[in-house]
Structure formats: C-alpha cells, structure tokens
Amino acid sequence: MKSTDYKIKSENVDVYYGDKKALTDINLNIRPNTVTALIGPSGCGKSTFLRVLNRMNDYIDSFSMTGKISIDGEDIYQSKIRVEDLRANVGMVFQKPNPFPKSIFDNVAYGLKIQGMKDKEFIKKRVESALKQAALWSEVKDDLKNPALSLSGGQQQRLCIARALAVNPKVLLMDEPTSALDPISTAKIEELIFNLKEKYTIVIVTHNMQQASRISDYTAFFYMGKLIEFDKTAEIFTHPREEKTQNYITGRFG
C-alpha cells in the first residue's frame, strides 16, 4: 500500500497541555473504510489523539501541538485550512449523547443549515437518508417534529450519529459512544458502526475491550501518552508483541 493511500496520517505528533505532555511522538496511519479502535487506560491520551484529528482541542487554551496530521494528504493544521470545513469532513460523536434542545429534524438538519443550504427538499432527503443510515428512521419517521430530548438515551446517540452523517463526512470520530448506554442500545450502535465503514473511515475510542475486538479492524493501544502498539485487531488480541499490551488486554491493569 502506498503511503498516500492512508486516509489519516499522523507524524511525530506531540501534544502539550500547558507544561504537561499528553502525547509523545505518535505515528499512526489509518486506512480508508476501516474501523480503528483506540484503547488504553484512562488518561493515556487516546481521547486527546481523537480530538487532534478534527481540531477540537483548539478550544483548550493551554493546548499546543507539534508534528503533522494529514487527512487525504492535506495537513489539517496549516493556516489556510478552515477549521469549520475540516469538521464538516471529520464528524464527531461524543461520549454522552448531546442532542440540541430542538426537534429531531432540526438536529439532523443543523449541519446543512450552517453550511448555508436553503433547498428544503434537499435537506429533507438528506435528513431522511442520514436517519436511515443511523438506523433510526423507522423509529422516528412520524415524530420528526418532536423534541430530540424526548428520545431515549440510545436513540439520542443514534440521532447524534445521524446528525454527524447528514453533512457527508469522510471520517467519523467516536469518543466512547456507548459508555453511557444500556447493552441493547450498545449492540444496535455496534451493528451500525459495522455497516457504516462501507462509506466512512471510523476511529473509535473505547474502554471496552470486547467492543474493540468485536467491531474494529485495527486497534491502537495507548499508554501514558505513547502509542505502544498498533496492528490488526486480531493480532493485538491474540498475539500482542508488547508486554504492556498483553497486561492491559488481559485486565491486569486499566
């Protein structure tokens, strides 16, 4: 595989919060249309790395970064990049469902609306297809005017996924998307992630080892701000090369 075939490339990435070093020398390349799981104990830097990919860390005053992140071969930290365009391309789903206090329809339509889309028919179609992709359409198609906050937790999270999909991103970042959900909702979302990789490149942070092994093609193990090991998920879970990885996945710490 040629290096330009990677969807996301990270080269020598160091991240600081003030004086504290949060990530050290991360080199990680992610292939298109795969699911990559980032695992590791709390505070290991996996969420920081995820947020570096769509520049959500820009809102933290003390944040600073060196190294290079490119998506589709383009350095996303160069000054000519509009961070808004980047984020439309790299969607994000958060740990806790965070729908806007608006209707279901307005939630999904929001991303299109802020891009200046006025064509109502187009928006309607897009909302429908996003909700279908997020496997929520059949449950809400008659209640699109209802407030999003009236949905259950699992539905809210799928709505947030639909909201991210509606703007047609290429990459989808997920920060422990099922940690606040019950097992049934979790299963639904895992199935959804499996189907979504046909169209999207997905990077997911998870605490749940079984989840990582179930849904991901590649797994990256972070420990104390460093990338310890990165390989095919099957390899990581059956033949880890590093002792730290071995200890973590067998539950000896974490």
Partner: peptide
Amino acid sequence: PNSLRMASYGLGASKWQTIWEQ
C-alpha cells in the same frame, strides 16, 4: 452545557453560528 457547544463545533459550525443557533 459545554457538550452543546462541542456538538455544534463538531459539525463544522463557526463560533458565531454556534452562538446564534445554539
């Protein structure tokens, strides 16, 4: 809540769009 802000930024909304819309 900050999650609302993040959700909006995460979808590519600008600062003012986030303030005005959310």
